[in-house]
Write a protein that binds this DNA or RNA. Structure first.
Lengths: 224, 224
DNA sequence: CCAAAAGTGTTGACTGTACACCCATGT
DNA sequence: ACATGGGTGTACAGTCAACACTTTTGG
C-alpha cells in the first residue's frame, strides 16, 4: 500500500517573473542573490519547495519574503528541468508569471528582503541560472495573453484614459498602434465602459475615463 | 558553496497523454496500474523521476517500458501539484502530450508492459489520480495547436488525400467543416503540395495525394 | 447505370488597415 | 495664441461563411 518510495527526487524550486510598466518601459522584478551559487547576481525571486507546499504557494512565499511583494494571481508558465541548470545538483523549477500595476507596487520593508528591484526588460544584466531564458518565455506568454484575453486590466488602474490602455499595448508589443483603429477594435470587444470621470490637469484636452466591466480573466475570440 | 540542502523535496513524476485517431475516433493511451494506489485502474503512463533524469526522458521511458511505445517528440503540457493528488504523499507531476499516427502505433512486446490500450476520449473509464483533468487540459491544447500550428502533419501519413486532412480536423474539433472552404484556407497556408500520387481502389473517384512541404513544427499567423 | 467520394467558384458580410483633421484645455 | 494630447469617419482590401453541382471511378 503506502510502500516506501525508493526513487531519489530532484530538488524542486519555483521562480516567478513579475512584469510591470514603469516610466513607459516594461520591467521585471529581480532580487540579488545573497548565497552561492551566483552570489550577488540578479535573479528571479524563487525558493525551494517546502513539505506539502504547492508550487504556487511557494512562489507567493518567495515574492513576499524576498521582494516584499504581496501578489494575488499567478499563472503557471513552464517547468524548467535541463540537467545542469543548477550547480547544486539536479533541480527542477516550476515557474510562474504575473503583471502588476505600478500603484500596487508597495514593496513592504521586511528583514529578509534581497534588494528587490525592477529592471527594464530591454537592458537586463547577466542573470543567475537559466533565468534569462525564463524571462524570454514569460515575455512571449505575456504578449500572447494580451492578444487572446482581457488581462490588460491588471496593468491599469480602476479608471483609465484610452491612451493609457493603448500605451500599455504599445509598450509590451514594442510598436505604435493607430489611435482610431485601436479605439474601434477595443470598444467593439465590449470589455470596458465609459465613466463620468474625467482626467484634467494635463495641459491638453481632458480625457474621458473608462473602466473594465469585469476584472476577472476571460478569453476572447479574436484580438489583434 | 555546495551546502547540503535541507528542504525535503516532494516526489516528482511525469505523466503523458498520447493521442491518436483510430476508426475515425480520437483516442488516448492508458495503461492498467499494477500497484497500489488505484491498482487495476486505468491511468496515464507515468513514472517517478530518476536521479539526474530530465522529465522528458522520464516520460519517454514510461511510454517505452509501460506501453511499448517509442516516441520522438513530446511537448510539455503543465505541472500538476494539488496537495492531495497522490495518496502516497506530496507528489508533483510534470505532464507531456503528443500525437501519433495510427500506422506508427507499433506497440513492442516488452515484459514490463501494463496492458496499454487506446480508449476513445468520449468514453473514458474512471481514471487514477487526477488523470482525467490532465487529459481534459491536453485536449484543449491539442485543439489550440491545430489552430495555430502545422502539427497536423504528425497525425497524417506522408501522402494523404485532402479528405483525410479534413477528417482529422473534424474529429478533433467534433464538428463538420465545409469542404470547399477548408480546401481553400488550407492551401493558402502553403504548407502542403500536391504529388503525382493518386489514391485508387476506393470505389469512388480517385483522390490526388498531398504531402507536407516540411515536417518540422512551425507556428502560423492565422488559422481558424 | 448506380453509388460514392472528389473536385470546383461566387457572393455577401464582416474585419482589418490606412489615413488627416478639428477639439478642449492649460500655460 | 499656441502647444498638447483627445477625439472622430471613410474607403479599400482581405478574409470568412454559406451554398450545389459536375466528375471520376468501382461495383
Amino acid at each position: 500500500m503506502s510502500k516506501k518510495i525508493i526513487y531519489e527526487s530532484p530538488y524542486v524550486t519555483t521562480d516567478t517573473v513579475i512584469f510591470t510598466i514603469q516610466d513607459g518601459v516594461l520591467k521585471v522584478l529581480l532580487i540579488k542573490r545573497i548565497n552561492s551559487p551566483f552570489k550577488d547576481t540578479p535573479a528571479l525571486p524563487g525558493v525551494f519547495l517546502l513539505k506539502d507546499e504547492s508550487t504556487r504557494e511557494a512562489a507567493l512565499r518567495a515574492l513576499k519574503t524576498k521582494a516584499g511583494l504581496k501578489m494575488g494571481f499567478l499563472e503557471q508558465l513552464y517547468t524548467f528541468d535541463s540537467r545542469h541548470r543548477d550547480p547544486r545538483g539536479h533541480t527542477i523549477s516550476i515557474t510562474y508569471f504575473a503583471f502588476v500595476r505600478e500603484d500596487e507596487l508597495k514593496i513592504a520593508p521586511i528583514k529578509s528582503l534581497q534588494s528587490p528591484e525592477f529592471y527594464p526588460i530591454k537592458k537586463l544584466p547577466r542573470l543567475a541560472f537559466d533565468h534569462k531564458e525564463i524571462i524570454e518565455l514569460a515575455l512571449m506568454r505575456l504578449q500572447a495573453k494580451l492578444e487572446y484575453t482581457n488581462v490588460v486590466y491588471s496593468l491599469l488602474p480602476k479608471y483609465f484614459a484610452f491612451s493609457e490602455l493603448q500605451k500599455a499595448y504599445e509598450i509590451i508589443f514594442g510598436r505604435k498602434i493607430d489611435k482610431r483603429n485601436f479605439r474601434k477594435k477595443f470598444l467593439s470587444l465590449g470589455l470596458i465602459r465609459p465613466t463620468r470621470q474625467i482626467l484634467r490637469g494635463t495641459r491638453s484636452r481632458p480625457a474621458k475615463l473608462y473602466e473594465f466591466k469585469s476584472r476577472k480573466p476571460s478569453a476572447l475570440k479574436k484580438f489583434f
